[in-house]
Design a protein around this nucleic acid. Structure first.
Lengths: 133, 133
DNA sequence: TATGAACCTTCCCCTAAAGGTAAAGTAAAG
DNA sequence: CTTTACTTTACCTTTAGGGGAAGGTTCATA
């Protein structure tokens, strides 16, 4: 099938699918006479797989690893779980960081009247170099 | 002072400070004979201000706004608070998104034995197109 | 068969916020 | 005068594609 159909079936844009072909992530057969890419059902399954992994915040390079595991009938589930646990910890750290950021900003905002006077504890704090330790 | 000193005093890299000059965020006096940038104490204060705002996840363009408010003796604290509240909501949304992502990945990981067998619920789920609704 | 719509191709520039490196100029110290 | 440290501009790289131009292909229709 043509790239447009493959894109529709996998829920990606043609731009994205073409990009994946260019970086060697999912390279379909390419008709030599027309130059058109020709995607198989199996290619579409992989595109869907990648789409899901991307939605789970896996990077392209991580997707490449996952795809290799996905295609390897002899892989151990241990390898996949390791990658997943790493990703979970990464997300946890990001959450903690953002939580701390939010707390500090909330604290600043709480001290600011938000009226038409120029006094502003937020700017004072920013210029005093406070916050984040 | 030279850019290296200004960078050290503001806790930024020279690369970053030079970048801020290039995009017109903080443009110091530039000595016409040597071509060297010459930073004042006031410039350094602004660099510190921007450094802090960046650490609070404000984008460069938001920093530009904050800097204008910072330099405006007649600004109202309302403007600053509005920008800050927007940023807080933005961070809250990001946290929720990541939390949901983490929960789903944790659920997948919990179902995976992580042994040397090929059975892997994580890959099964990814290829089934489940997750995220 | 001709034409037009809809699709496809490659190619190049754009994003945010710098980091890395190269080639060359400047300044201060010995 | 030379070494060393510092600075300058300039160009390439990063992530994961998006936008759009110029031109080729395929299919439907008159």
């Amino acid at each position: 099938m043509n790239i447009g159909t493959a894109a529709k079936q996998s829920g990606l844009t043609t731009k994205t699918v073409r990009y994946y072909a260019n970086i060697g992530l999912i390279v379909p057969y390419q008709n030599p006479s027309s130059g058109y890419r020709d995607y198989s059902e199996s290619d579409v399954a992989k595109l869907q797989f990648i789409g899901m992994a991307r939605r789970f915040n896996f990077s392209i390079e991580e997707c490449r690893e996952l795809l290799a595991l996905y295609e390897d009938r002899n892989r151990s589930s241990h390898d996949v779980k390791t990658l997943t646990m790493l990703k979970i910890h990464e997300i946890e750290n990001k959450i903690k960081e953002l939580q701390s950021l939010k707390d500090q900003l909330s604290h600043l905002a709480a001290g600011c009247d938000g009226n038409d006077r120029p006094d502003c504890p937020i700017l004072d704090a920013l210029s005093a170099g406070k916050g984040h330790g």
